[in-house]
Design a protein around this nucleic acid. Structure first.
Lengths: 118, 118
DNA sequence: CAGGATCCGGTTAGATACTG
DNA sequence: CAGTATCTAACCGGATCCTG
């Protein structure tokens, strides 16, 4: 019983830590949306991405992509074209976020609808 | 075919917007963790909450709770005790975040483990 | 106990312009 | 095309102390 209680709170503590870790990696106004765009479309060039993530400034997009790349969620590939083009895509690690991303998308859509009703 | 394509990109656009909306509501370093703590434990008093969300300063916790309350994700109840105590709990709207919260917790735990292997 | 008051430094993100 | 440079205002979040 006592043991049980400790285990429960221990697993809870771990979950909260996990939530925090995840939130840190997806911090800021744009990262989750960027991952979402890449998730739904596969590969994207910088310009296409900036068109799909509406409103993000190039400087900000560039910085967020670097962060995501550093954390191995996004892979950046420079293509040897003229002029050069760059492709961004999710790594397998990044793709493993799909449950979160899908849930966020669906929840956000429902939330917006529930606001309109009022 | 053309119709199909438009519908696809339309639903994608909506999903990205949903992701953004969700991320806005859970923005900042602590909100998701706070929701997680409330999710795993039900009700919490201010002090208990601050103990479970390790590291958060009272001022910050207070502000985040207000934000969450404003967006109808958290309900605040003042109990008529001496001295007064306050209980926080998720609203049904807040509880509906459970898929996101659970997924974030699980993903974060796995991510942390994958880091330790290296 | 549940916060508010104050102070503060760092980060964030936007606008605009520019480069290889 | 794929970013960088510069500037700036706003905000975030931490520390510390205080109050009903």
């Amino acid at each position: 019983m006592e043991k049980r209680k400790i285990e429960l709170s221990e697993s809870c503590r771990k979950s909260i830590q996990g939530i925090k870790d995840t939130q840190d990696l997806l911090s800021g106004k744009w990262k989750a949306a960027i991952v979402g765009a890449l998730f739904y479309n596969g590969k994207f060039r910088f310009m296409d991405l900036s068109r799909h993530v509406v409103g993000v400034a190039p400087k900000v997009l560039s910085k967020e992509l670097k962060d995501l790349e550093m954390n191995h969620l996004v892979k950046r590939t420079v293509l040897d074209t003229m002029p050069i083009t760059v492709e961004y895509e999710l790594t397998s690690q990044g793709k493993s976020l799909h449950r979160i991303i899908e849930a966020m998308g669906e929840w956000g859509i429902k939330y917006r609808k529930s606001l309109l009703k009022k």
